[in-house]
């Protein structure tokens, strides 16, 4: 059984953005994440795949300390971003989350105008000197999220009035506007139709230029399409991590192979 839990670390150590060492997560008495070690690179899309309940979303939420909002959740081990331990006492989780943006499973635009949705983060963190500055930030975020052309004439319209795919891209724009370094995406396409999914996937690939993107997905095709690295989680363990192509064509662990070929999950 020993070799089942080892993983190949084919990582370019020059470019590492996030390092997780011996991370354990408990929900009350439930040991949800067991001893996860991983190094996530900058300017790379990393996909977390695995069957439901395997802990991939839980681990994702550790990276921006969103689990802090859940009372019974306890995290052990170290997670370092740029060599700095984010679970250190001196780190303010609120500041951390500005640096590590997150996009959720269901599009969740605030009940505000499109403009105010995107301006929310910059306003909170005081990123804009003045109104003109804010306009520039909002426009560039919407452009980078590939939704500017669709909404530029109706920035005052409520964000909740957009279609599902547009809402999700608005949420991505909202996350980008805060100028994060890492972008976490928790099944960002699971509530979208195929066309909107294609648009968001295209966007994810473009976002790689500026950010380290970590995406949790249930769709193995999606992981294969958008990611360069893939991590396979099973029952709270990180089973295998490596180049996406290698994971999908030549998995080393029998569990990964079973999952990819559809025998577990």
């Amino acid at each position: 059984m020993k070799d089942l839990n080892t993983q190949e670390n084919v990582v370019d150590t020059e470019n590492v953005k996030i390092v997780a060492r011996n991370v354990q997560v408990y929900y009350g008495d439930n040991h949800a994440i067991k001893d996860v070690n991983v190094e996530i690179e900058a300017n790379t899309v990393t996909a977390f795949i695995g069957p439901s309940g395997c802990g991939k979303s839980t681990f994702l939420r550790c990276i921006n300390r969103m689990n802090d909002t859940i009372d019974i959740c306890r995290v052990e081990g170290d997670i370092l971003i740029d060599g700095e331990d984010i679970y250190d006492r001196r780190v303010d989780p609120v500041q951390l989350r500005a640096k590590v943006g997150m996009v959720f499973q269901k599009p969740n635009p605030f009940p505000k105008s499109i403009f105010d949705n995107v301006a929310y983060g910059p306003r909170i963190h005081g990123l804009a000197q003045n109104k003109a500055d804010l306009n520039i930030i909002v426009e560039s975020a919407l452009r980078r999220a590939a939704i500017w052309e669709e909404v530029k004439d109706r920035l005052d319209a409520p964000g909740t009035g957009l279609s599902g795919g547009q809402q999700q891209r608005l949420c991505i724009a909202r996350a980008i506007a805060t100028e994060p370094e890492v972008l976490l995406m928790d099944e960002p396409c699971s509530a979208l139709d195929p066309i909107a999914t294609a648009q968001v996937e295209e966007l994810i690939d473009e976002l790689r230029e500026n950010y380290a993107v970590v995406i949790v997905t249930h769709s193995m095709q999606q992981a294969a399409r958008v990611s360069q690295k893939t991590a396979f989680f099973h029952l709270g363990n990180l089973v295998e991590y490596g180049e996406t192509a290698a994971i999908f064509t030549n998995p080393t662990d029998p569990r990964t192979e079973s999952y990819i070929t559809g025998r577990i999950g």
Binding site: N64, M66, T69, V94, R97, I124, R174
Partner: peptide, 21 residues
């Protein structure tokens, strides 16, 4: 809850989230 998560995910504090979202 997704609205609160969205706000926390952008680095808002609890009272900012309550007031603005």
């Amino acid at each position: 809850q997704s609205l609160r998560d969205g706000s926390y995910g952008l680095g808002a504090t609890q009272s900012e989230t309550i007031r603005q979202v």
